[in-house]
């Protein structure tokens, strides 16, 4: 074990963050301010997610870290190694084996189980920020459920594009009360939030906010009666595993414009091919 405290953060900090997490779970979708610490990675690279993970991880946990669905991108690898060094916990690329999954921008395709915890990296936690720059005002709006502006956003989209053009970080209403930004996951993943058996924790390090969606909580994507919420669909199937159900990335393969579509979730794709990710 290195000279760091378990999971890098000191116990006082972990206690403070855990209190914030408990409050967040008690009020689904509500943004709880917390004393975000300086972490050994820059703002914008997942400091919030790392602090949440560091506060909940225990020696018996099995950690998976993904970035855009893949376990092998630079950031996912760095964060996974960070926790391996500061906690010694087992890490994995398999969604079904993990107890704790930190993610940037995707929810795994493999359905989650009760007892699993998802930790999301959040850049901007405030859904009303697009129209209201004042923090004092947005807090009041949340407290008074003054959410007309969120539908104004969708209205403007439909007016400009004929449909709601928001493709990721699509706003949702949690437990019929707070409106929340689910972090920049594609809207394709929004339905996975609804009544998920897993605990969803969201950490924004730069903005210093933590929020949560407890297991089995209703989460509904905002829409209009005559423009209901829809998810992305592809004509193509995954070039590697032939899946027609997963979120596909478009990959340019040569300089003649050749392209293939492959699953963004590397573990899911590998599982379907009967291989390790």
């Amino acid at each position: 074990m290195s000279a760091y405290n378990f999971a890098y953060l000191d116990e006082q900090t972990k206690r403070m963050i855990r209190r914030a997490i408990l409050k967040a779970i008690a009020i689904p979708g509500y943004q709880v301010p917390f004393g975000s610490r300086e972490m050994p990675l820059s703002y914008g690279w997942g400091t919030g997610g790392v602090q949440v993970t560091a506060s909940v991880i225990g020696p018996d946990d099995v950690l998976k870290v993904i970035d855009q669905g893949a376990d092998d991108t630079t950031n996912a690898v760095s964060i996974r190694h960070f926790f391996a060094r500061t906690t010694g916990v087992r890490t994995t690329t398999r969604t079904d084996e993990a107890t704790l999954i930190q993610t940037r921008h995707r929810i795994p395709e493999t359905p989650l189980r009760p007892g699993q915890i998802m930790v999301f990296q959040v850049p901007i936690p405030e859904p009303l920020r697009w129209l209201e720059p004042r923090e004092t005002e947005t807090r009041t709006m949340h407290a008074l459920e003054e959410y007309g502006v969120m539908h104004v956003r969708l209205y403007e989209d439909i007016t400009q594009h004929g449909r709601v053009a928001t493709a990721y970080d699509y706003p949702v209403r949690v437990n019929g009360r707070y409106i929340m930004r689910p972090s920049p996951i594609p809207k394709f993943d929004n339905p996975k939030l609804d009544r998920s058996p897993a605990l969803m924790l969201f950490g924004a390090g730069r903005e210093k906010r933590i929020y949560a969606v407890p297991p089995w909580t209703p989460v509904k994507s905002l829409d209009f009666e005559d423009h209901p919420f829809t998810v992305e669909r592809w004509v193509e199937a995954c070039a590697f595993c032939a899946s027609r159900e997963s979120f596909l990335d478009e990959v340019i393969v040569d300089d003649k414009g050749g392209r293939i579509f492959v699953c963004s979730d590397t573990d899911y794709c590998a599982r379907r091919r009967g291989q390790e990710a």
């Binding site: 007309g148 539908h151 104004v152 209205y155 403007e156 007016t159 209009f224």
Partner: peptide
């Protein structure tokens, strides 16, 4: 920063109108 139509529609949306 929002269109005229959205300006007039917002109070309705704030009161729960959900049909574009």
């Amino acid at each position: 920063s929002v269109t005229a139509g959205a300006n007039v529609g917002e109070p309705l949306m704030a009161l729960g109108a959900r049909h574009y």
